[in-house]
Amino acid sequence: MNIFRILGDISHLISILILIHAVSTTKSAQGISLKTQAAYVVVFVSRYLDLFFRYVSLYNTLMKLFFIVSSIYVVFLLNRYKKNSEKTNDIFPVWYLFGGAFVFALIFNYEFSIVEILWSFSLWLESVAIIPQLVVLQRTGEAQLLTTHYIFALGLYRALYIPNWIYRYYTEGRMDKIAVISGILQTIVYSDFFYIYYKKVVKNLKFKLP
């Protein structure tokens, strides 16, 4: 376990806490893509099937349980605060992402078994799952600051996994090509957002300094 992975995991954890905090304090699901959040439930459930047959560490188990339970809780919260009358910006055809991830999982996997295909599927789906959320952000125009912090923390998590993989390559001499390529894809999906975030949030904060 290296510093990049720990920071990445913490960033992932914080992103979910920000999201839960934002939705429960405003009692509103506005600006949050239910499609993206539902996709994360599928991501975590399909990836963490190994909870049943592989023990890595207490940390690993607790984090997996946290991600599964919190993602389901978020979908529950969003459904509770969703107003049917509201005009929805959550229009991205999410089934393309599911379909594409499934095809990629059939092509790129370490073994043609249900568990391995679902594991690969979860990585590909995760790498593009934020797209409906980015579409909502783009269509809404003005976003809540917390929403942008949430997306940033979530993007930072996979970006931090990249130095983690480089570090592991040099220290352990091993590489997981599916995780690495899908992880890089995920970071590319975020790159446009990172740039806008930097321009709007980071520069504005600096601007306020005396």
Binding site: R5, D9, H12, D50, R54, V56, S57, N60, M63, K64, F67, Y110, W119, Y161, W165, R168, Y169, G173, R174, M175, D176, K177, I178, A179
Partner: peptide, 10 residues
């Protein structure tokens, strides 16, 4: 390098 899945990651 060896290609080994990172099943210890999240």
């Amino acid at each position: 390098f060896k290609v080994i899945p990172f099943k210890d990651e999240l």
